[in-house]
Design a protein around this nucleic acid. Structure first.
Length: 258
DNA sequence: ATTGAGACCTGTCGGC
DNA sequence: TGCCGACAGGTCTCAA
């Protein structure tokens, strides 16, 4: 999409998680995409009109890209179609409709409610043990629940929260504040957790870049979705357990994660 | 202010 | 084979 113009925009089904913004089609058509970036789990397309297109895939959303003609007949879950001047036809498909799209006026992207309270990007230098410890210092919630709080660290999801805690050998059940001293300085556990988050995300990105393995289900997770199976940590011998926290599944090894 | 519970919507899978 | 409940990768709102 970067560098291409919206020749046509088709909003087949405007009732996504939030309704598409007013005049969605008119505001996009004819404008050019300057650049596509990302913030947390939001895709951010900067437009020549000055506006910014914010997109979220929710749980089940994805984009397909066809050139010339769509390869398939329209699916009932093809909600938005972008016909670009490059010839690319970009289709947003989302069965559950937890995804969203919004348009933000120039200079107000940072004020958007979805972005304004986000914490640091986990792969940025700003996200270090000091930042994590400070953010968790007064938190009575479980450590895993804190990792899913996008104000503490932006963009970590349910799978990689569990994965990072396993790498860091930390129990998802401990209180978040236990990785910081009373004064909010990082304990060794905060160092391990920060490094583990960066590690699992970098690995996942490298895997996703491998087009021979596009499905997350094809991934070989350390703990996620492995209830009852043996811990992969060498010589641990533990068995992966599943618990529910804040309505989400958490997987961990009670033997090596403390 | 922080926390937990429930809501949003549809598809898939396992058990009976 | 068919039905039914449980569960799914993420926010967002509401009430305590």
């Amino acid at each position: 999409m970067a560098g291409a113009r919206f020749d046509a925009v088709i909003a087949r089904r405007p009732d996504l998680r939030a309704p598409l913004p007013r005049d969605f089609v008119e505001r996009l058509t004819g404008t050019t995409v300057r650049a596509v970036t990302r913030r947390a789990k939001y895709l951010v397309a900067e437009l020549s009109s000055g506006e910014t297109l914010l997109m979220h895939l929710g749980m089940s959303g994805w984009f397909s890209v066809d050139h010339g003609e769509p390869s398939q007949a329209p699916d009932p879950h093809d909600h938005v179609v972008f016909e670009m001047s490059s010839g690319a036809i970009v289709t947003f498909n989302d069965p559950r409709r937890f995804g969203s799209m919004d348009l933000v006026a120039a200079g107000h992207v940072g004020d958007h409610p979805a972005l304004s309270a986000l914490g640091p990007e986990p792969l940025s230098p700003a996200f270090d043990a000091h930042a994590l410890a400070r953010a968790c210092k007064k938190k009575t919630i479980a450590l895993k629940v804190a990792l899913l709080d996008q104000r503490i660290v932006a963009g970590l999801g349910n799978i990689y929260a569990s994965e990072a805690l396993h790498v860091a050998r930390l129990s998802p059940l401990r209180r978040a504040s236990t990785i910081a001293t009373r004064t909010g300085l990082p304990r060794e556990s905060a160092d391990r957790l920060t490094a583990a988050i960066k590690k699992v995300l970098n690995e996942a990105i490298a895997r996703a870049a491998d087009t021979t393995n596009t499905s997350y289900r094809g991934a070989r997770f350390r703990v996620y979705d492995r209830e009852g199976e043996p811990c992969r940590r060498p010589r641990c011998g533990g068995t992966i357990k599943r618990v529910e926290q804040a309505g989400r599944s958490t997987f961990y090894c009670p033997r090596c994660q403390r």
